[in-house]
Amino acid sequence: MGRKITDKVTWIGKIDWELRTFHGEELSTHKGSSYNAYLIRDKKNVLIDTVWLPYAKEFVANLKKEIDLKEIDYIVINHGEIDHSGALLELMKEIPDTPIYCTSNGVKSLKGHYHQDWNFVEVKTGDELDLGESKLIFVEARMLHWPDSMFTYMTGENILFSNDAFGQHYASEHLFNDLADQNELYNEAIKYYGNILTPFSPLVKKKIEEVLSFNLPVNMICTSHGIIWRDNPTQIIEKYIEWANNYQENQITLLYDTMWEGTRRLGEAIAEGIKSVDDKVTVKLYNISRSDKNDILTEVFKSKAILVGSPTINKGILHGAAGILEMIKGLSFKNKKAAAFGCYGWGGESVKIITEELKKAGFEVVNDGIRAQWNPNEEAKTKAREFGKEFASML
């Protein structure tokens, strides 16, 4: 069922209440998500994006209730990933000659996914599509977060169809930001940025500056996932500028994996030391194997420093610690300090391994870390508290 956004624009997407992981199993979506598609009615009618492949038949059936498919003059695909374009196969069976507007990389992506030679129209930044009373203006947004990504701006209504930018994986009965739970909305927005867009922060900043230079009024930002921004829509743009600028809060996060609780106890003692020096700093501890990895990465994004701990096993580290370090490396966090800790029985290589991985991930490693043999006794915990104090003072 469609929902009116303005007199000319209708939301015709799908709310996915049951979604719990995205990008395979890579990203957790505790609050579900939505696949936002939009129908524009003017002298020319335009469909902007579709929905994820499993909902293709449902999408086309619902679209038929909104409009005779033959009255759709153009299709705009802002991004070829199948959560945006998944209903195209089903839709194009009905209207096979309808022009599909996308970037040149969008053509490659769509052909790669669907192996169809549809009526593609390649567009680049500044190209326009006249609908009658309104125009669509296309803005390439390469690597935000794919090479084929673009924004579409609608004049008259002053709507920015922002693709994956400014979105959230967040299912809600409320379509607009002013109706949603503000804490949930913020938490899902920063998790989305921290886990998906962080590697592209320099490009995010540059692209936002470019779009702002066009001096286009923005009454609404219609995202591809989650809530539409209509109340003070530029607030999320301001947040993206802040998040893209080597973001950090007054927070230190300790991540650890543990076998016999020794590394946990070591981490807790370090945290006590940190808090004894600075009671205003937020200190959070996460058992990597028992916590959601994407929630952890969101906390890393917010932190000015992290400590990563693991015991030594088979001359290496536990797989939970190894996995989170690999994800941290891929996200290319900036402007953050770090150190390692861990327990051992015989070899004791874990702290050195973690230290090297943190350096590879681009963190400023402030010392050689701390390790304790077997289950930390009171002397070892006292040393860990002193280590925490020294670490805090180095920040």
Rank of each mutant, 00 (worst) to 15 (best):
L39V: 03
G167T: 02
P233H: 05
G262C: 01
L318K: 13
M327V: 10
A361M: 08
E390S: 12
T298E: 11
L358V: 01
I5Q: 04
P147K: 07
Y286V: 10
F138K: 05
T282A: 09
S85Q: 10
G126W: 07
K8A: 03
V9W: 04
F59D: 10
A392Q: 07
P217A: 01
D130N: 14
V139P: 08
E133W: 08
E26P: 07
C102I: 12
N195V: 13
N183E: 15
K359Y: 03
P54I: 07
D164Q: 13
S201R: 06
A165L: 15
P376L: 04
P233C: 08
K383V: 00
Y256R: 10
Y256P: 11
R142K: 15
I75C: 05
K124I: 11
G320W: 08
L197E: 08
E326G: 13
I77M: 15
G267C: 08
H30M: 12
T10R: 08
N377T: 01
I274S: 07
E66L: 06
W260A: 14
I236H: 05
K329D: 10
I313C: 08
L395I: 05
D7F: 01
L216A: 02
E188T: 13
K206C: 07
L358P: 02
N195L: 08
N375G: 03
T98V: 14
P199C: 11
E299V: 04
E71Q: 11
N45W: 00
A271C: 05
N183L: 14
D130I: 12
Y192C: 03
E173F: 08
S393I: 09
T198I: 03
K135W: 06
S104P: 09
N62V: 01
T50E: 02
M220L: 13
D127A: 00
N215T: 04
I100E: 02
A244R: 06
M394K: 15
D279I: 07
V107L: 00
Y170R: 10
K389M: 14
N105D: 15
H174V: 11
I241S: 10
V76S: 00
A189P: 03
T253A: 06
W146Y: 13
H115M: 12
D130V: 13
I306D: 00
A244Y: 06
E58K: 12
N294K: 09
Y170H: 14
A171S: 09
W52Y: 13
P54Y: 07
I324K: 04
K65N: 15
H113I: 09
I12G: 08
Y153M: 01
E378Y: 02
Y35W: 12
W146S: 14
G106D: 02
K207C: 04
F387S: 04
L216Y: 06
Y170N: 11
I208K: 00
L255Y: 02
D130A: 15
I274W: 05
D368F: 00
